[in-house]
Design a protein around this nucleic acid. Structure first.
Lengths: 370, 370
DNA sequence: TTGTATGCGTTATCAT
DNA sequence: ATGATAACGCATACAA
């Protein structure tokens, strides 16, 4: 039994040592900790900790040795342990309703991107209805998130609980009137008014409105905006029928409106694009109504299919990208502020997307006199 | 100064005591801990801990006192501290590409729902491209998730790192051929074959294929399935053009195919529904092609707009609900197994959705002879 | 059933 | 720049 003639290079010796050490740790059913790295690297545990803290004071040589050992051991700092002492989890709760994500996946995608860019992880909660926030609140408290972005309906008590717990909260696209809570939103009421204004200016008189679910604040504001504006303009009250934000609701809604009116309306304002497309398709393909020749259809949201050739819907766009950006900014600044929460509402204006499903100009050579 | 004549009821005394205690804690800038609850309730800290552990042995009276104190103090167990000792975070990482969520929000919504139902929180990671998993892996290790569901492309090394770290992994809708990793998927290759088979049986001979991005394994398998099957049937090789899974790609793809073929193809197979609809709209509304009279169009996914009247696309549905269910089941069982990971692949068959954009029967009274 | 004591893996404070 | 030591908030083995 002789010793090996050619000793392996120092590097691989270190690697072998790390591998051996690691195997032992695994055998004991422990996890690799900063303490283990310290032993392998021949430094103190606090030195290891510092190496993983950006901007800490460590000499180049220790840093190198620690990083080598860490790599050999597959060491990664434990976020749970860290957050325990720093009181920062770098996680943000995002709450969105199931249906909202189905219809506007852009909202979640943008939020996730913006938060990630700011070094926050997203703890996602999808809820069946936008009024079902309560069950997830417990989780939000437990998981020590640094803040929350909620795109759902909150009660006064719920908002107050966030305050009580000093947890930064941004309400997304939900107008909590009179409540002192930071929020980012698109002006839904004004959206409704805008559509009514433009359609009325083009000479439409008999309006149908396919509203959204009663539980949806967004839907209600759109409807109210349109109704209020029509009343202001002295037009006959629109026929308002309910809907569930889905395609079928759009078709059903149009049938209901026609039944109640005894005739085709001049224009139909739909609570969202999905319903508008349901309404549009029924009108064109089943009822043979000329859109926009004898009836106009408009929606809200500017979802992608609305822009497709076969649809080319006239609708209102919510500037999702900027809204997500604003929400992420607002929340992170609240988190940095560390308790001095400055409440702020950021309201964005909708953008009219002119499609070919609504006539927005007065009929040619036709005075508006009845 | 006399004492109050009517002493407040015991309950409110307790409440007042809790409120006072809480104020003190807040003043010291501490958090409410199980220790605080113990003091207010007059029990030990471990008793408090037990009260929050379902199925622990606590007397009814202690439980009541603890819960009262906890309520008064707004106490909630700290998940980070808990996971530190239990080695369970009850969080699951879900990785999905940005575009995937835009096109199939259903996948994420279903996964989130199923995981929540099983008591797991979702730590969401959205990545720009499905090949960009690497940057999020570090976060996954750090955050001590109990497992991960990844709907993106993984390299061998990446899969091995999951194994090395003993982290349960389920790959969603991505076929990692030959790699021993649990996965849930829909048979994309077979989907491609199926579409080719049915269209060929109806007499289509000159095929165009609008493929998806080269980086998308799903897209490639659909394309390969179709191509292979057409070759088997002895049909002329299809004209294959690339696409990016978006609406514009569908239109551009059809133009390219027609240019390369010098004529309208008999059938176009599109890598997903969004492109299929882009192709369909161009054909009908710009090129005036009769679909399905003189050309058939089919896609994959059965996204919602595909079912709308104006589209009524012939496509293949992936049973998303069952797939999400399977993924959640698979992952949770791996987590329970505690290291004895049994690798399993669950492959689902696609379902043909017969729309009106593809002729699936031979033309009437027409022999197939050229 | 209840309480005592210990450890989970990290950061932060304070010397040196 | 580095190391010893004390938290962070909880769960669990063990003793009572």
């Amino acid at each position: 039994m002789r010793k090996t003639k050619t000793p392996p290079p120092a590097e691989s010796v270190a690697a072998a040592r790390a591998a051996e050490y690691k195997a032992a740790v695994v055998r004991e059913n422990r996890r690799i900790t900063s303490y283990d790295v310290a032993i392998v690297a021949g430094v103190s545990q606090s030195a290891v900790s510092r190496c993983f803290k950006p901007g800490a004071s460590v000499s180049k040589s220790t840093y190198a040795r620690v990083m080598n050992a860490a790599a050999g051991l597959d060491y990664i700092p434990n976020a749970a342990a860290r957050s325990l002492i720093t009181r920062r989890s770098n996680m943000v709760a995002v709450v969105i309703s199931h249906v909202a994500n189905l219809y506007y996946p852009e909202a979640l995608a943008e939020l996730s991107q913006q938060l990630t860019r700011r070094g926050k992880r997203v703890l996602l909660f999808t809820i069946p209805q936008e009024t079902d926030v309560e069950p997830v609140l417990g989780d939000i408290w437990q998981y020590q998130v640094d803040g929350a972005i909620i795109a759902a309906a909150l009660t006064d008590e719920q908002v107050q609980e966030f305050e009580r717990r000093q947890l930064p909260l941004v309400v997304f696209n939900r107008n909590l009137h009179g409540r002192t809570v930071s929020s980012v939103l698109c002006d839904q009421y004004e959206s409704g008014r805008l559509l009514a204004t433009r359609l009325a200016a083009a000479g439409h008189r008999r309006f149908g409105i396919i509203a959204g679910p009663e539980t949806s604040a967004v839907a209600n504001e759109r409807r109210d905006g349109a109704c209020d504006r029509l009343r202001e303009l002295g037009l006959p009250p629109p026929v308002v029928v309910p809907g569930q934000f889905d395609y079928a609701s759009g078709a059903r809604g149009l049938r209901d409106i026609i039944a109640r009116l005894g005739d085709t309306p001049d224009a139909v304002i739909c609570g969202n694009d999905v319903m508008a497309l349901g309404c549009l398709d029924l009108a064109r393909h089943e009822l043979g109504i000329d859109v926009p020749g004898s009836m106009s259809v408009a929606g809200f949201d500017a979802i992608e299919p609305a822009s497709w050739l076969s649809c080319n819907l006239t609708t209102l766009r919510q500037p999702m990208h900027n809204m997500a950006l604003a929400a992420a900014d607002l929340l992170t600044s609240m988190i940095e502020a560390h308790g001095n929460h400055t409440v702020e509402k950021r309201m964005f204006a909708p953008q009219l997307v002119v499609g070919s499903t609504a006539r927005l100009l007065p009929p040619e050579g036709n005075s508006l006199a009845a």
